[in-house]
Nucleic acid binder design. Structure first.
Lengths: 203, 203, 203, 203
DNA sequence: ATGTAAACGAGACGGTACGTCCAGTCTTCCG
DNA sequence: CGGAAGACTGGACGTACCGTCTCGTTTACAT
């Protein structure tokens, strides 16, 4: 009689509707793109998703929760891309930052970043979840690139790769948060600090 | 050429009440300390200040504006202190960060920081004003310290002092934003990056 | 052939709360008695009824609407009574008007009448509804009395009963509206006009 | 001792500005024509008149007071006209009521009447003043006509002329208040009651 | 001429209520 | 029993006016 195979859950009554779950996340992602976090409302999400408010409260409990899941599941992408890898770490990072520079001149992109950051800070208790959903991936991307560089040029980095990644990410995000421009000078200085300039590839 | 004695101002109607202005800023500062930015309401500020709502809308237009002015005028202080100066830059920074580390364990301090950062990100159009009201002073404090160090140990810094100040500030704030702990390892790594440890003073 | 069973109503979502409906009407009636129509506020009604403002706006849309319904459903009575019937129409009307005369000397009664009339005139689009809710019943009462008299004394009335009822009602209300006293002379003249005095019962 | 000569007035300081007084009354009259009494505001009048609010409060104290004076001084006319006099009282009244019938079909006229009546009922303490400013003149006009008729045809009226005038006025105003139509039947019945039809002139 | 004093326009003040929006909860019916 | 629909209490929003209160500016009389 032992059923073996774990009943995945004690399961009674109607199962959760995947359709509703996805509809909510998609609606949230759509609305996020078009307005600030403050203006994003549970009612708005429910209406756009064709879903009862209760369904959202049942499964997420707050709009921050919905946003976190939407980001974690890729319904909404932090529009920051990832640096390429041509073997020249400094050059790659420079190119990446330059691309960002032109990208955030589009108001839509700029707003989306601010919206996400605002969601982060408004989150309170969920800020850790937010961090891992949002910031971690970016850091991870940078980290991988720094790791590789480190392997090729041991001792050429001023600090552990993961730390440098975090530093770059923090500087970038804070700059975007305050709508300050990514000037060429600023980019150069950041690169100088993080990938000590010029000489690193020469022994 | 006589400058013609500037008309002091074209002034009609009852003049603005300084008493109300101060009452609003004080009330906002008090309330900020006790709750999040989301929970801070215009009605609450008006009631606490003994002021009509219209008076707030007349002069500030949004709660973010009130918070910016309260900060700019020192009614509310960003509880981050400023590093001492004993001649040992690295040591001073380390001590400062260590002090912060214990300080932000108090929930009140931690909440205040998050509140202010939330106000910043919610500000939208005023984010630049927010930046100069809040972040600039911290940066300026760090900057001064780095400048002095640079003068004493030319070439000992990995990047221009002001840039290092910004980097330290950004890393710190973002860490606080996400409620991540200021570990000793993190502090050490930051110092290693910014004030290349040990060696710089030896030829 | 069965008519297909009238859809009882297409009914979705939580049904309207009768408790709230009654609470609002009772609260409005209570408040009306104690203040003018101008001083009667939606917020006051909502608070007194323990109801959200939205509930009032959802179902009535204006305070005039609430007052109309309160009157129509008898939560608030126009304090004008109805003439008795002893067989002597002129005497009955005289007694009724005399009773009113002393009654409206109480400021509370006087204020309530003015309040209701003010609600009527402020109503605008709903003035027809107001009329049928308020004035019609009074008229109807008078009408019945005149009808009966007419039956007993054919030709003794100067105009159709319903018209005489309307005339008496209009004269009375306008007099109350302007806070002018119901003097004995005025009453006598009205009766003389409407129930041609003395002689009608003699052939 | 001889008091004699009244000090014309103890008069110090700047005298009241007639220009402002007139501007206020004109502004009030203009605004009354375009909106309801409820929507008529002191601030609106002050702005339209180019006058400080205090000037209105100094001299009138309430918008009802302004309206009363505007009516009393003829800045705003109750659009009811006055019956002609061709010797045939019944015919003249009939013609007058018929003219009104078509006139009040214009929404502007209808609204103005309701506005004035609303001002009356909202007035409270000033309702007596309102009455003499507004209703009295109409009554007076009717009264004069009835008086003359009475002189020509003694005993031909069912009640004292002034009373009949009041009755006609009251019936008319209440009908207008409730936006009920002035039908031909209603007019005929009123005339039958007030100027007993046909026979009175024949012996 | 020069006070002195009241009325003036302007407009900010503390308030009250407006009508709207949304939060989060609750009830009902449907599948 | 999950989910949509939607009504519920509660409370902040930003606006409109209230009636009061300064301001600086006329404008008249009384020195």
């Amino acid at each position: 009689m032992s059923v073996g195979a774990e009943k995945p859950v004690e399961h009674r009554g109607r199962p959760r509707s995947e359709k509703s779950r996805v509809a909510v996340l998609e609606a949230a992602a759509d609305l996020m793109a078009g307005c600030g976090f403050q203006e994003l409302t549970i009612e708005g999400i429910a209406a756009a998703a064709g879903v009862g408010k209760q369904t959202i409260y049942r499964w997420w409990g707050s709009k921050a929760g919905v946003v976190v899941e939407a980001l974690a599941e890729g319904f909404l992408e932090m529009p920051l891309g990832v640096p390429e890898d041509t073997g020249d770490l400094r050059g790659d990072l420079g190119a990446w930052l330059a691309a960002l520079k032109s990208e955030i001149e589009e108001p839509e992109v700029s707003r989306l970043i601010q919206t996400i950051m605002s969601a982060l800070t408004s989150a309170g208790e969920t800020s850790a979840a937010m961090h891992s959903a949002l910031v971690q991936p970016i850091m991870a991307g940078l980290d991988a690139r720094f790791q590789e560089h480190d392997r090729n040029h041991p001792g050429g980095l001023a600090a552990p790769p993961s730390f440098l990644a975090e530093t770059v990410g923090a500087s970038l995000l804070l700059r975007l948060m305050f709508s300050r421009p990514l000037t060429t000078e600023w980019i150069d200085q950041l690169l100088d600090l993080v990938v000590p300039s010029g000489r690193p590839d020469s022994p």
